[in-house]
Design a protein around this nucleic acid. Sequence first.
DNA 1: TAACATGTTTGTCG
DNA 2: ACGACAAACATGTT
Length: 255
Amino acid sequence: MTRNARRWTAGRAIAWLEICDPRLLRAGHELAEVSLPAAVTGAFRRGKHLVVTSDRVDIAFHFRMTGKLVAGEGEGRIRARLHLDDGSSIAFKDSRRLGELRVFESGGGRTWLDGLGLGPEPYPECHDGGWWRDRFAGVRSPIKPALLQQHRVAGLGNIVASEVCWQAKIDPRNATAQLCAAQWERLARAVPAVLTSIIDAETSDEITYLGEGRGDPTGVFAVYGRADEPCNRCGSPIVAIRQSGRSTFFCDRCV
DNA sequence: TAACATGTTTGTCG
DNA sequence: ACGACAAACATGTT
């Protein structure tokens, strides 16, 4: 979505921001005296946040469970629209409305993100096993829930955490402190591999989430949502469990 | 109908 | 300090 936002806004200016659903704006982030039009200067991702920058304002998005950006007016649960000076628009669609949108003065998006305490990026930057071991030093929870802690490493979600563990042949129930060097090394390789493959599969004008029917990405995942289906490596049925209130899928035979 | 869902925050309890 | 858990947010799907 960051790539799309960049592509859709490059060389254009934000003419106006349409808030279709006022409940979208969080307290303390009302649309104050925003000065428009504003020439877009770029778009970047930090963890699961997306920020569109311009010479006057930064617009920060978080999509939570069901939020997404779509080109054009969009259909259905549109919470906001970014209208550009060439007449085009980008819609923030979010059926469950857990997503967030914040508007800052230019540069404020980065400042705000810096205050969130997010851990370092695991992608596209790559790291070795020792780096991963150090980032998770002192963690007493199992490795899979630990991967979701945004203050240790930013950007990994529940689907990716299960996928990464399977790819790295690590039991998601393993105590983090018990992982050996070889496991950390496999984890270090699995993270960019999994992210790259998912991003490749999802590269299009509209991200498709699980359960959306047309374009459902179920086929993209090796274990997530595949309870009782055969493991791609060994054929053993994929197991579904709950960890810290979140669903985890893994192969209990080839970890 | 009830349970569950890709995320995060907040509070409780251990 | 850490961790597990539940609730809350709001709504759609199974």
